[in-house]
Amino acid sequence: MTAIAAAGLGRDYGAVRAVDAIDLEVRTGEFFGFLGPNGAGKTTTIRMLTTLLRPTRGHAEVAGRNVETDPLGVRREIGVVFQETTLDLDLTAEENLRFCTRLYGLSRKESKLRIGEALSLFGLEDRRRDRVRSFSGGMRRALDLARGILHRPSVLFLDEPTLGLDPTQRRRIWEYLRRLCNESGTTLFLTTHYMEEADPCDRVAIIARGSIVAAGAPLTLKRGLGGESIELTAERLDGLAARVRSLTGVEPKTIGDVLSLIVDDAAAVLPLLLPLTAYGVEVRLSRPTLEDVFVALTGQPEEPAA
């Protein structure tokens, strides 16, 4: 079963090509991560899939319905959690949720039941009558998520659900999403520009400058890099790249103030680099991350000039 299918999907804004022409296929019940740096076209893609933006070219189906010819059908099947919170800060948690159940025309009884469920799921029962203004960023985000699933969508879109949260809160949100996917069979489509976060996803697609540059399971993508990554740091990097190349025969990549080297067998390469430590160069071995995948594919760090 396919939850999301896109073929040649693209969008221009005037002369600017925000999304080139992407192909996507997300299976039902899959936890799908859509990764890319800021401005790569993630939000534009989500907006096209959620019927907020009409594609300039290509076509897309969500839950078997065409986003252009049957937008209402699509909207009936989806839940959306926006990048920016959509909560009313002057309303209580419960009132915010009730806005949503009314919007979807749930009966009073059903609404009460689901609001209770959602609040307890997020551990917010004892705050149900408190105004959202008094909530921490993490609690607000949790409430946003609760609102997105109140009507039990079959596909849930999340645009940077962990943006602005601290690491602990971020991990909680991800754990919850993983569980939601496993237990209710909801298809999750989420974007993030934190590459390392996407490890729990079943599959990811990486978008850069409006095009998908890689897709697959996180592990497969990392393996695709051919093994291990060696990082070198030094006070001065100039000249180091050339030395490394001559010592190992591998072309290193400069990422910020780190020199990165992807090799098949680190055990064979590391001894070659040892002479460098005498010049104050630090050598570190690391497993490739999704960020390494991204860098290898696009030749740039995840957030250029951030």
Partner: peptide, 19 residues
Amino acid sequence: PGRPPSPRPAPIEPVGSAL
């Protein structure tokens, strides 16, 4: 926010509790 930590498996409990 700074860089996220590498996700480590942790026991699942309601998201809000720690928040």
